[in-house]
């Protein structure tokens, strides 16, 4: 799980082009949207693209996406669950 979280953090940084950040700057339970990392609705769509490109997981409903993208923790749990 730790490897997955690390991997996800790296993907977040590269896919969203977070230039002045590294994976180390993102805490597992930091809110990704709103006050935490400050991502927005377009970032949510880009994360959906990331899930499809990197993990072959398709998220069709942006509303469902909100819960998945709460934090790295929720994202990792979701990806893990899809693999099972």
């Amino acid at each position: 799980m730790e490897n997955l979280k690390q991997e996800l953090k790296n993907f977040i940084v590269t896919h969203l082009n977070l230039e002045e950040m590294t994976a180390a700057d993102i805490q597992d339970d930091d809110p990704l949207f709103g006050d935490g990392l400050g991502l927005d609705s377009i970032d949510a769509l880009e994360l959906i693209v990331m899930l499809e490109k990197e993990y072959n997981i398709k998220v069709r409903d942006p509303e469902k996406g909100k819960a998945i993208f709460q934090s790295v923790n929720s994202l990792a749990e979701f990806v893990q669950a899809q693999a099972e």
Partner: peptide, 10 residues
């Protein structure tokens, strides 16, 4: 034929 980036489209 991969997932397409909305940022690129915009």
């Amino acid at each position: 034929a991969s997932a397409v980036s909305p940022t690129s489209f915009i």
